[in-house]
Design a protein around this nucleic acid. Sequence first.
RNA 1: GCCCCCGUAGCUCAGUGGAUAGAGCAGUGGUUUCCUAAACCAUGUGCGCGGGUUCGAUUCCCGCCGGGGGCACCA
Length: 576
Amino acid sequence: MKLLPQEIAHSVDAAIRAAQAAGDLPAFDVPEVKISAPKRAEQADYAASIAMQLAKPAGMPPPRIAEIIVKHLKAPKTIGSVEVVAGYINFNLSDDWLRGLVETLINDGADGAVIDVGAGKRAQVEFVSANPTGPLHIGRSRGAMVGDAMARVLQAAGYAVEREYYFNNAGQQMNNLARSMRYRYYQALGLSPLPEDCDERGEPYYKGAYLIDYAETLKAERGDSLKGADLPPFKQFAEERMFAMIKATLNRVDIHHDIFFNENSLYDSGEVWRTLEALDARGYIYKASVPEVDNTKGEKDEDAPEAGKAEATWFRSSRFGDEKDRVVVKSTGDATYTLPDIAYHVNKLDRGFDVCVNVLGADHFKQAQVVQHGLRALDRDPSKVHVIFVQMVRLVKDGEIMKSSTRAGNFETLDDLIDETSADAVRYNLMARSADSQMNFDLDLAVKQSNENPVYYIQYAYVRCAGIFREAALRGVTDVGADLSLLGEAELRFLRRAAQLPDVIEASARQFEPHQIAFYALELANLFHPIFDTVRVLHSEVPPEVAAARLRFFRAAQTVFKRLLNMMGMTAPETM
RNA sequence: GCCCCCGUAGCUCAGUGGAUAGAGCAGUGGUUUCCUAAACCAUGUGCGCGGGUUCGAUUCCCGCCGGGGGCACCA
C-alpha cells in the first residue's frame, strides 16, 4: 500500500515551488512539508499547516498562501477534494479510491509486508535474553512482548527480520545455578549439601522449587553416580532444563527465536580477546588500579580501591563522553560483562544487519551506553543499533506493590500470568503501552477485567466478520463480483481510517514503537462495531447486490483485523 | 552530585509545534423479531508548578516539585 502523507507532501512541495516560479509567492527556502491526519476525523483525512509556517517568509497571511498553493496544486488521484480552512489545506480521500481500497486490503492479506520501506533490508531484534537461571518473570515478559511485536511490525514494513536471544552462560550466575542444582541433588540423595554450594545462611543461591523437581529427575536419570562430581554436569543439566522451560513458556505466547546466541561462543571463537586487542591497537586500553578518568562525584568512597590492589584493564570510554573509564578485564584476569557485550555487538553488526533493535530493561541504560562507545571505538556504526528501553513493570496485588526476585523464588512468572489471564491478554497488555512509560500491572484487575478487555473488543471485530461469512455460506450469499459503488457512508468512514494502515506501520517501525499498532487496532475496532450494528448484510430488506458489496467490505475489514492481531502476536478466533 | 524515563479524566494509559486534548475500565440511564449483547446509544468543568522560544506550546528549552531507574574489578 502507499504512504499517502508522503505523496501529498510531495505534491504540496511541488505546488509551492511552482507558485514561486510563477511569481505568486516570493522566493524563500521551502521547509519540509509535513502532512498529518487531524485529530478530528470530520475535519479532513489529511491536512497541511504549511501556510502558517510560510506566513513570515512569504510576508502574506496564511489563508492567502494556502489559496495560492492550492491554485498550483496537482493533487494525487487518491485525493477527492482539497479545501482551505482557516489557513489549513485540507485533503479528503476520494470516495472511489476508498471503495477500491476494499480490494487492495483483501489482496494484501493478513500476513507479509504492507509497505516497502524496509524492502531489501535486514533487521534483527534481540529480546528476552534472560539468563537461563529460572522461569521467565513478568519483568522480562514486557520486553518479550514488545520485542516480538517490534519484529512483526518490521516484517509488515518490509524488512527481513531475525529474532535473536542472547544469553550469558559464562558468568557467576550460571555457576550459582549449577551449585544450587548440586545442592538440591545432594538433598534428593538424602545427603548434606556441600559447603561451597551454600550461601551464607546455608541455603542454595537459587531457591526456586523447580530445582527440587529437577533434582528428582536428575536422581532418577543418574542415580547417585554424580556424587562427588564437579560442577559441569550440574551446570549442563540445569541449563538444558531451564531453556526447555523458557522455550515452552515463550511458545505459549507464540514467541519463537531464530537464533540463540550464547556468550561462551564468543570466548570459543576468540572474539572476546580479539575485541580487546582491537581496542588496545586503537589506544583505548590501559592498565591501572584506579581509572585515569573519573568525573563521578558522590558517595563512592566505600568502593574506593585499596592501596596496592592489583591492576585491572580499563577501556577509555571517557573519550566518548562517559563520565569515567570502565573496567573490561578484572585484576583477576577475567573479563567483565562489558567486553563480551561489545564483542557481541561487533559480531551482530558484522553480520550485515541494516538495523539491530535491542530490547532492554531500563536498568541496562548505562551498560548500553558503554557498548555504544565500544562500537564507536571500533569504527562500527552505533546508529544502526537502536535500543528500546522498557521501563519497569510493577506487579500490584491486593493494592500493594509486590517485590519480585528470582532468587527468592516468590516471583510471579510469565506462566502464572498466562494461567491467570490468557496468552492474548498478556500479549496485548504488555505491548500496548509505550515502553517509556512505567506500568503497574494489577493482577486482580487483569483477571477481573479479562472479559471486559480491549483484547476481546478487538478480537470480537474479527469474530463478527467471521460470523457473517458462516451465515452467508449457509444462505448461499457471496461477495463474488460485488459492485463496490453500492457501499455507503458508514463503510467509507471505516475505510478512511483503514487507509492509514501503512502510515501507522511506517511510524511504528521508524519510531520503534509497537504500541502504536495496539492503539490503532483499538480505534479501528471502535469504528467497526457501531457500523456492524447498522450495516446489515443478511437481512430481508437488503437487496442482493447491496448485500454482496457489504459482504466484500466486511471481508476487507476482517482481513485488516487479522493483520493487526497478527502484528500484536494475538490469535484471531473464529468464534468467541 | 550527575544521567535516563515518567507526571494528561476517579483508575490504567494514548496523543500532537497548530483547528473543540482522546481511548479503555469503573459509574449512571437506555437498546435485542434478522449476520453472536464480549455489542450499540447517551452521559466527561483533566495536560504537576514557574519561566523562556514561537504567529501558535499540553508538545521544544531552562528551573523547580513529585515517582521510578541508573552512575560496580555484578551479569
